[in-house]
Each structure stands twice: as structure tokens, then as C-alpha cells.
Design a protein around this nucleic acid. Sequence first.
DNA 1: AATAAAATGTCCTACGTTAGTCATTTTGTA
DNA 2: TACAAAATGACTAACGTAGGACATTTTATT
Lengths: 341, 341
Amino acid sequence: MATIRDVAERAGISVKTVSRFLSGYEGISAKTAEKIERAAEELEFYPSAAARTLRGQSTDIVSLIAENLTTTPFSYEIVQGVQSVCEEHGKLLLIGETRESEKAFEQLTDRFRQQKTEAIIHATFYHKPVNIKRQFKRCPLILVNCFDPEGRFPAVVPDDEQGSYDLTRFLIDEGHRRIANITLPTDLVATQLRQQGFERAMADSGATIHPSWIVHPQRLRPTEDMDWLGSVLESLLESSNPPTAIMCGNDKMALRAIMQLHDRGVKVPDDISVVGFDDFKVISENVIPALTTASLPYYQMGQRAAEIAIDIASGKQKRPDIERSNCEVIRRNSHAAVPSE
Amino acid sequence: MATIRDVAERAGISVKTVSRFLSGYEGISAKTAEKIERAAEELEFYPSAAARTLRGQSTDIVSLIAENLTTTPFSYEIVQGVQSVCEEHGKLLLIGETRESEKAFEQLTDRFRQQKTEAIIHATFYHKPVNIKRQFKRCPLILVNCFDPEGRFPAVVPDDEQGSYDLTRFLIDEGHRRIANITLPTDLVATQLRQQGFERAMADSGATIHPSWIVHPQRLRPTEDMDWLGSVLESLLESSNPPTAIMCGNDKMALRAIMQLHDRGVKVPDDISVVGFDDFKVISENVIPALTTASLPYYQMGQRAAEIAIDIASGKQKRPDIERSNCEVIRRNSHAAVPSE
DNA sequence: AATAAAATGTCCTACGTTAGTCATTTTGTA
DNA sequence: TACAAAATGACTAACGTAGGACATTTTATT
């Protein structure tokens, strides 16, 4: 690797002047500057960030530990959000993946901290509590899509309750009263919050909740999934006074529901409205009819987390608190108004 | 930041011994080791990678410059592949995004090289030639999903010709002779290669190509897209002896085609077979019928690129060549055999 | 050609870690 | 208790860069 000394030698100039040049010193003649640039180019010289760091300069490195980069495309949007803000602030981004292994988490934090990262962002692929064991007093840790139950770390999470409330409310405003809700597994934070949002919206509007229309999924092998959903839909449709709208736990489920309803000759949205959750655009924008859903604002959450990370790292005090990101209702074509009776 | 000196002091031990401990020296008593560990933990000490780098140790940093992290979920799989191999080899991964700006590319390479990265991987979001201007004699540059027309850099690209050949061949083996092909824009490398694969497969089997069934898309605003596809399908179906299979330029197009055919009362695959390209699983696995398609092996390409990067960085000589990754035919349910006449 | 101003040079130290050379202390064992 | 072996310590140089203090050279201005 070429050093500042090699450059100086090649350019026939003192090390001090090259150093001045690199530090942006003004009083350097155009001629010398040109000589330095040429030498640097020829030698493929890049000043050592390591040496600079050692001299006490900031590393401008932010790190992201994703719980899972591989299995779900969702969490990826968090990465994108983090990356966009890092770029904006001139920070380099280090990335790692834990695959839910605590050991991997600790190894990554170790190595990132050896790099003197200015902050570490930890992202999970679904909304959940996490239990952080290591000390993070000298390096800010920001959580995204997860939170510390004791509130020791700043966190950014989706406002599932609000999203579900707004989505339910939206259906109600469209005239729906008989709403079915096919949820995600009940042990998820998101499921519970969304359930609360759903119930609050129904209560606020004086609509009645049919307990048998609140369907919780079973844990099944993927191949059985379709059958399960099919029989759920069947039994919903067989009700004497069937629901006019079905809320699905996520867009993927909504996609499947729409296709199965289609196969059964039930028209969406004319015969029944179907809405999802997540706004996973590859699905929501491409299914016919395009999906009405609530967004999980992962990209924005990633951005917020990075902003918080950089703020804390730069000394702008920030008490650790949990920030809830708005889940917006995205109106597309899978819903229709119920004609007033 | 705590240093090795602070740790030594706190543990009541010489710097030399702490250094020995950190370097994995065997002859250290359990008692001293324990003292060091405790002091390190209390001080949140992490040995400075910068100082180690300066001493001449390897950085174990690999960098990835993605052309586009934001707009397409596809290229993300490349990131995942790279990440998985980096983890396996204990390399840290630095990530950046160019958004097709050459300036951004140069800024990123500058900064990565300042970090003394062992290699730089450059990924584009579709198969294309790239024009690299900077010198990369002292830092390996590996291209993924793109290539240097002069072959100066190792590259990993999908074998579009082979994928299209195999997929066409597969349809032919299922009895199809009348095959329509709705392609991607014609200026893409992938389109041309796939066209070649398609033609070679047809020629090999003695099948006739209907020129009017090779449809190239117009550049349209997204909202007009559906209408265009609709009229294309319409005119294909109106042929006196219509095609028995439609190959689509990608899975998204195939999804739209299936839904539009469905709306027109044409059954897939009973009335007509539809296949995609990409194997973008969110679509291909969830559409009904599940999509028969050819995979774009982005994950594997990312892995290969990282392997090559690490090989070159570690001195295992590797002449720059272009590696083509196999696009596999994924058989699902959107195709059916044609009854022999 | 004299002179001030601008540009460049010399020399030295510090950053945190590693590692070499020896010296010294502690431990285990006969 | 003696003695070798094991563990630990003291001191120093080096990695690449930045920057302070100050000296010298070059350039521009009269």
C-alpha cells in the first residue's frame, strides 16, 4: 500500500506539503497540487483511515445488525432507510446479520466496536421485544422494529395499534359493519396491538364484533396453508349473514385470499372487500385488484433510526424513548363501499 | 475510548501481558486472564482495529457497492449472498449505493479504499455492461450482474441465454409448438440473450417462430402498462390458431398476464400456459397457479462474487473472467402439457 | 535588486497496538 | 528449601498521518 511518504517522494515534494494538501490547506500552488494528484493517482494512494482514526479523527462509521437479511424481504427496507440517511450524512455503513443467534449478535457488536463505530443499529424482522445483555454505555445502540422492555435504548417501532385502528375505521367509514379479521399468530406483539386497534375502532363506531370472525392461524407446514385459508374463507362465506369485508394479517395472506375467492367465483371488491397489512408493494401493487392495505413504514423507520443514531453519536443529547411510526392506510382497489341499506 | 493501557492499569497488570492475552498467547494464568476480562468488560474496552491495521494486520473488510438498493428488491438478493459468504469467512461488510451516479461510485470507492478494504464488489440491478474508469490494480474489483466489455475485471452474470433456452425447451418438451414471447425492453442485454436462447431452442426442435408473437414492450407510464398488456393478450388470443404458451419477460409481467387472462375467463394453465422469468418468489410462489419460471440466481451470484473477491484478496491467483450462473427452470403450476394431436 | 509575502521544508511527537529483547517475579516440584 | 520452569514486566520501535514550531526557499511587487 502506498503511503503519504511514497506520494511525497514520487512528486518530489515534502511529506508535510502532501499532508497539508490532504487536509485541505489553502496555500498550495496549483503546480504542486497537480504534482501531488498525479503521484497519488499513479500510486493508487488512498490515505489510511486507520492512521487518521488513530490520530483521533472520527471514523464516520455506523453499523447495522439485522436479525435477518435472508429470509424476509421486509426487513430489507429498513436497511435501505438506514443506508439513505448514512449516505446523506457521509457515514459509511457496516452490515451484519445475526440469524437470531445471540452469539452472532455479540460477535458482530464486538467487531463493530473494534472498528470504533459511532453507533449500532439493531433491526429485527418483526415487531418484538429484545433482551440486550451487553453494556452499551460508550456506544449508542438504537433498536428498530424491536424494543427493550425496560426502555434502556432508543427504539423505533411501527404503530400497529394505530394502523389497525385507521384501517378498520376506514372500512367502517365505507359502510362496513360486518368485518372479519384473519390475524397473524397470536403470540406476536403486532397481532395483539392490531387486535386492540381493531377492537377500539369497532367500539368507537358502535359496530359489533363477531367472535367467530376473528380467526387466528394455526402453525402449519407451508403446503397446508392454502387449504387452511380456503376452509376459513368457506366457513366465513357460509355464515347466514356473511361479512362484507375481510381484514388479513398481511398482504401475502390477502393475495392468497383474493385468489382463492376469485377461484370460488366471489368477486373482490364487488362481492366482498379484502384488505391486507404491510403494503408489501410487490404484492399490493400487482395483485388484481390492487390491494388496499396499511403500510408498515420500514423505510422511514430505518431512516429515523439512523437519524437518531447520528444525533446521539454527535452529542445531541437524546433520552432513550420509543418512537412509534405511523402506519398509513393505502387505498387501492380491493375494497368497495357498502351501499347503505 | 478505553485503551489497552487503561485495561492494564485497572487490572493491575502490565500492558505487555494484556497484549499477550489479546493476541491469544497461551501462557497466561487463569487468574490474570480473569482480571483482564473483567477490566475490559467494565471499561467496555474493544481493541482498536485502526491500530492493528496500522501495525500491518489485515482489515478483513470487504465492500459492496450496489447500483441500486432502493428501487428494486431483486438486487437485494445479491447483497444477501455476499453477506453470507463474508460472514462465513469472518469478513466485515461495508455497503454503499450509487443510484447510477458515477460520482457516487467514485466517492464510495475512495472511502472504501481509505478503509483498506480487501476487495470491492460492484453490483448492478440488471444485467448490463459497465464502464470503470478508475484504476483497480491494487484493490480487486469484482463485478456482479454486470461486466467490463474489455474483460478487465472478474464478473459474475446470469446465463440468460441458457435460462431462456432451457425454459423454451421445457415448454417444447411439454408439447408446445406455438409459443408467444412477451419480452423486456429490447435494449437490455438480458432481452437479447434470452431472445437468442428462445430462437436456438425453437430451431433445435424444428418449431416455427411466429414473428407477430414476439412482442416487445413500449416504454409507458406505469398506469398504462396494464392496458398495453391487455391489448397484447387480446390480439394473441384472437389469432386463428392461437399460441398454447406465453413466455413473459419477468414474473411481474406473468402475474399481470395471469390475472388479466383470469378476468377474461381464460384458464391458466388449462387453456393456456404462462411462464415468467426471474423466480421472484414473492410473486412466483404466491400467485395462483404458482408460477413456472426460470430463476435469476442472484443469491448464488452474490455468493460467487464474494468467494472470488476473497480468493483474489488472499492471493489465490485468479485471472479475470466472466462467470455465467445457471438460470434454472422452476416447475410449478402455471404450465400444462399440450395433448398430442 | 530589495523586500515582504507566500509556499515549502525539517524535525519531532502522538495516536493504540504489537512484538522483540531481556530482566524479574511467581509458581510448582523434588 | 532449592531450583527450574512458567509467568509477568520494563522498555523500545514501528505502522501512517496530522500538526505544532520554526527555518528556508520561491514568488510577486516595487
